[in-house]
Amino acid sequence: MSVLVVVECDGGEVKKSSLEVASYGSQVAQMLGTTATAVAVGEATEANLAQLGEQGISKVLYDAEPRLKDFVNGAYTKLIAAAAEKEGAQVIVLANSNIGAAVGSRLSVRLKASLATNVVELPKNEGGSFTVKRGAFSGKAFADVVLTGDRKILAVKKNSIEALHEAGKTATVESFSASLSDADFADAPKQVVMQDQAGGVLLPEADRVVSGGRGMKGPENWHLIEDLAKALGAATACSKPVSDVDWRPHHEHVGQTGITVSPNLYIACGISGAIQHLAGVNSSKVIVVINKDPEAPFFKAADYGIVGDVFEILPKLTQAVKELN
């Protein structure tokens, strides 16, 4: 019996969400009186994988097969299933990402496991039942879910668990092969196209987000959003109407029908705060709203607010951040 953690790597680095997943997994292992092993996917370096010791991982399995650098659903599923069998994993923890959820759902069928996605807290294992809290109703509620299967798979929502950092602890890195064949790569992507990220910060992984709505009046004013984002080391985002009219690219659209973000800081500029927009951002730790209308519904969901004109306020904020740094 053990806990298996799926760690996603990119360009050699372990993704921040995977540091959270690793920390989650090692705490579950401690709860169950066992150890946590990680299986790494994507492009990784041995040194970075060894550092997962800081998140409480004792051993990392890594298959250096070059075709595993980019996500391939079939191959990743087989690799992780093989690692789970090898380790006798009872609990498998992944990120609730487009990779983690895609692999997790296939794995749950293959391993006859119970699956909970969008998990936001450590599980409770009491009175013979294993329960986790997950987000539901698009951020408007939570559900305590009982996983009744012998095996459990948990996909952990980003930024809902604090990553552990026990300095100096290292994990052993073991090479691992799932004997993948060409057939396992049948659904490999033909091409991968990465977007230019403003300031280099990826929106789904961002700690801070500066977001603009129709109140920004037009794409020519977006430098105000970008300047503040850059000063804060934040990613940029937008409301749906803004991406609908192509002021901003679609992948920046957050909300019920866009992506869900849960950064530590979300700054909304000229966004009214419609319920569908809030659904994508309301699990952010701190929400700041800048709107010229004191009645804008977003203020009800905000921690800090400024009633005023974004065109005057944004440059002042950028200036203040620069002075602080």
Binding site: S129, K140, A141, A143, D144, V145, G305
Partner: peptide
């Protein structure tokens, strides 16, 4: 393979500081 034991609403925000 799963069941919901209980639902909960998110904690209320404390109110905005202007």
């Amino acid at each position: 393979r799963t069941s919901v034991a209980e639902y909960a609403l998110p904690p209320k925000k404390q109110g905005v500081k202007l």
